[in-house]
Structures are given as structure tokens and as C-alpha cells.
């Protein structure tokens, strides 16, 4: 059983966004990490990269496959979670506690296109 956290925005491609002021922290959901299995590598974006809602910004590699990361928001990457370079398994241990990138949002109105926790829970069933 996978967990879902309330108060976050969710994308159909199984990323979450936590909004704090003008910034969004982006990670993948517990459902996604469970489907992937053991995560062995996270291909992080670089600081100052521009990301676009719906476009790929990196990848998560499990033992058996690579999955593209799709950005749920548009903006500029201001920070990446460097801890994932040495410990990619943190995604398996706590998918909601380990964000992948921090984005300065260029268009907060885009968040309306995302789901709340209830709607996301429904698509995971």
C-alpha cells in the first residue's frame, strides 16, 4: 500500500509539488517509487535550468528500467537535492521526504492543472 500526503499538488505522471511561497519542491510519489523498485540513480537537472510543465527534466533509474521525470511546473531550477547522488535509495525510503528539485515558479496559475491528494488517490487505485 502506498501513502499519499495531503496538501501537495500531484501530476498524472506521479510527481508531487509542495509549494512554499514562490518556490515549488518537486519529487516522485510513493506509488511511483513502489512501481519502480530499487532506485539506483537519479539523473538530476542542473541549477539554472529552465523547466516547463509537462516536459522531461531528468530521470530516475531503478535496477531494471529508466523512467523520465516530468516537471509538474514551469520555472527555473534553484536547487537540486545533492543527497540523491550518493543515496538514490532515499527515494525508496521516503519518497515524500526527499524532493528532487526546487523550482522558482514562473506561473503559479499552472498549479490548477494538477490534482489534489484525493484526485490523485483515485487514479492510483
Amino acid at each position: 500500500m502506498s501513502t499519499i500526503v495531503k496538501g501537495l499538488y500531484y501530476a498524472e505522471s506521479h510527481e508531487w509539488v509542495k509549494v512554499e511561497g514562490e518556490f515549488g519542491f518537486v519529487g516522485i510519489t510513493d506509488y511511483a517509487q513502489h512501481a519502480l523498485g530499487n532506485v539506483v540513480y537519479v539523473d538530476l537537472p542542473e541549477v539554472d535550468d529552465d523547466v516547463t510543465q509537462g516536459d522531461e527534466f531528468g530521470a530516475v533509474e531503478s535496477v531494471k528500467a529508466a523512467s523520465d521525470l516530468i516537471s509538474p511546473v514551469s520555472g527555473t531550477v534553484v536547487e537540486v537535492n545533492e543527497k540523491l547522488n550518493d543515496k538514490p535509495q532515499l527515494i525508496n525510503e521516503d519518497a515524500f521526504g526527499n524532493w528532487i528539485m526546487k523550482v522558482k515558479l514562473s506561473d503559479p496559475r499552472e498549479l490548477k492543472a494538477l490534482m489534489d491528494s484525493e484526485a490523485y488517490e483515485a487514479i492510483c487505485e
Partner: peptide
């Protein structure tokens, strides 16, 4: 082949 970085060649 051995890669120098951790990215995975599929």
C-alpha cells in the same frame, strides 16, 4: 564496457 559515472546504459 564500464562507465565512469553512475548512469545506467540500457
Amino acid at each position: 564496457l564500464e562507465l565512469t559515472e553512475r548512469a545506467v546504459a540500457r
